[in-house]
């Protein structure tokens, strides 16, 4: 077998005896006939297959309707709602899939086996317009500009641009005025905790006595009067607190003198990173872990960050007890809770 003459006409030297720099495109490969093109039986078989696939689709649709009516309402028996819903979902979904896949595979199989499979070639044309059209386009633009006289009448140009630039204000002004509510971003710096607010269980709202909190427990806390707030969810988003009782000997530091009560400390539950609820308390290490981005805070040491993307400690809520032994706040937090923002220290 020799390569030189059977396959590579481009290796033929030019007339002057030099070889070309590059190979030449050998042109379209030979067309291979399909089985169905040569054998009428195979052709017929392919047709039957396409027919069968479309039939599958029709059967799928019918089965869908049958399933819809035969299965009945899955909520009739409240104890079996999960499994009945699952059965319904499965049957409706499978029959729908058959109805769709039958059409899809049928059409594709048809195209592949029965439609002409001779590759065709079409010429491409340059995307750019030809020089003549470009010139004409340019001329048209110039003529238009000329007609309008915009280049000569400077005041008009300014007026048009000015009017167009200004009119969106009519839409933007009321939109911007209202879209941010009252725009009072100062609210970010305060929560509804104040002197004397009782600490209550989330979500029941039952107030907590100091004696309820055993060592190693963690209470998820809301202000007792949360439901009285105008927007309880907005207030809850800032005010939630985690209450933990440590052995007083384990407390290394806290953010303020006398802010805890008999080993009971209260820290904001809102992460100082991006605001997820920091709620995973590890009793043995006294670490609080945020499940969103794994910022870890040491509750025994002023809730300082020991790992992760948060920078600041969780703000501590100063607490004490009232006459009846219920835990109450001494004041609001002494700094804004939650994620940092530009003016938080202002």
């Amino acid at each position: 077998m020799s390569t030189h003459d059977t396959h590579s006409h481009e290796l033929e030297p030019h007339g002057d005896g030099t070889l070309p720099d590059r190979f030449e495109n050998p042109g379209h490969p030979e067309h291979h006939q399909r089985l169905g093109d040569l054998d009428p039986k195979a052709n017929k078989k392919a047709e039957r297959q396409v027919l069968a696939l479309f039939t599958v689709s029709v059967v799928g649709t019918i089965a869908f309707a049958v399933a819809y009516f035969a299965l009945g309402d899955p909520t009739t028996d409240p104890t079996k709602i999960a499994s009945a819903t699952r059965t319904e979902n499965l049957w409706l979904g499978l029959t729908l899939a058959f109805a769709l896949l039958g059409i899809g595979t049928g059409a594709v199989h048809w195209a592949k086996t029965l439609m002409n499979d001779h590759e065709m070639s079409e010429e491409r044309h340059a995307i750019a317009s030809d020089a003549e059209s470009r010139e004409a386009a340019l001329q048209a633009l110039q003529d238009g500009a000329e007609d309008s006289g915009i280049s000569r009448r400077g005041a008009l140009k300014g007026a048009v641009i000015g009017a167009l630039a200004l009119f969106p204000i009519t839409i933007a002004l009321p939109l911007i005025g209202n879209i941010g509510g009252d725009w009072n971003v100062g609210k970010l710096k305060h929560t509804m905790w104040k002197k004397g607010t009782r600490l209550a269980r989330d979500p029941s709202g039952r107030a907590i006595k100091a004696s309820d909190v055993t060592i190693g427990s963690v209470f998820h806390v809301i202000p007792e009067n949360l439901e009285e707030a105008e927007h309880p969810l907005d207030e809850k988003a800032k005010a939630v607190v985690l209450l933990i009782r440590l052995d007083p000997r384990d407390i290394k530091s806290e953010q303020g003198e006398g802010w805890s009560y008999d080993g009971i400390v209260a820290y904001s539950k809102i992460c100082t990173h991006v605001g997820c609820p920091v709620a995973l308390y590890e009793q043995q290490t006294h670490h609080l872990l945020c499940p969103c981005h794994q910022s870890t805070f040491d509750v025994a040491d002023s809730a300082k960050v020991v790992f992760g993307p948060a920078k600041r400690a969780l703000p501590q809520l100063p607490i004490t007890i009232d006459d009846e032994g219920y835990l109450i706040a001494q004041s609001d937090f002494h700094e804004p809770v939650g994620p940092s923002f530009w003016e938080r220290k202002k």
């Binding site: 769709l100 896949l101 049928g106």
Partner: peptide, 8 residues
Amino acid sequence: GFFFVVFG
């Protein structure tokens, strides 16, 4: 056909 395959 491929649309129906994708949806399916």
